[in-house]
């Protein structure tokens, strides 16, 4: 068995990342950044309820930031890449750590959300790619009638497709589970646990996850019901 000596030729950052704890820290920090994006993205989107002009103007304002927008996009992409890379490496380790499965294994107290992180993650990734093709790039065939800059009209037309609406609702429910476990779990990974505060963190995580997924679902449902036109 390899011994884990302290002296190593590896650079200290790589040495940190080499450990499972290092990878988990990267997942927690990038997860926190992506969670921040989900909040801002929802706040932006909720302007859809303030009338058609608001969302179009918000879109223009975002584009007007120019280089800053590309820095934000680059940062988010980096977070996504790091988050997924660490997840894949840990998944590979998981497979190596128990190659022979149990004949019978029962989960006791763990939550559905915690056990399905490796499923909800890829679903969200697939959804993000679809979402970009749908509303950012307006790929013909994915979006029925995409007009560059007409954010509000694109949203209403795009979400009026029943299949797309179902995809959005499915992805948002997976996001809810992923966020719930992710948000409280990042505190644990960063070493923050307390018998008094951790139960509150879990409750807050559930509330925040429901609010974030629910906010997005409200937009889809409002379009389907014709509240937002």
């Amino acid at each position: 068995m390899a011994s884990a000596a302290l002296d190593s030729k590896l650079h200290r950052t790589l040495r940190f990342y080499e450990a499972t704890n290092g990878k988990k820290t990267v997942m927690a920090l990038t997860g926190a950044a992506l969670w921040g994006f989900v909040i801002i993205h929802l706040l932006g989107n909720l302007q859809v309820f303030l009338g058609p002009d608001k969302l179009d103007k918000y879109g223009e304002a975002l584009r007007a930031t120019g280089a800053l927008l590309w820095v934000a996009r680059g940062g988010l992409l980096l977070c996504v890449v790091l988050h997924i890379t660490a997840a894949l490496q840990l998944m590979a380790l998981k497979a190596k750590a128990r190659p022979q499965p149990y004949v019978k294994k029962v989960a006791t107290t763990s939550t559905y959300a915690s056990r399905t992180m490796y499923w909800s993650g890829p679903v969200i990734l697939g959804f993000i790619i679809f979402h970009l093709m749908h509303f950012t790039w307006g790929v013909p065939g994915i979006h029925p009638d995409f007009v560059d800059g007409a954010v509000h009209a694109n949203l209403v037309k795009g979400l009026s497709q029943p299949l797309a609406a179902v995809l959005y609702l499915t992805a948002m429910s997976m996001l809810l589970f992923h966020l719930y476990h992710g948000i409280w779990s990042m505190f644990q990974t960063m070493g923050l646990s307390h018998p008094r505060y951790t139960p509150l963190v879990k409750k807050a995580a559930a509330g925040i996850a429901i609010a974030l997924a629910g906010g997005n679902i409200a937009i889809v449902v409002s379009v389907l019901l014709g509240i937002v036109k």
Binding site: S3, A4, L90, K96, A97, A107, T108, S110, W184, T189
Partner: peptide, 15 residues
């Protein structure tokens, strides 16, 4: 050493 022994990583599941 825990990593060198090929134990998996913690996903804060609580089992």
């Amino acid at each position: 050493q825990m990593n060198a022994e090929l134990f998996g990583n913690c996903t804060n599941i609580g089992e």
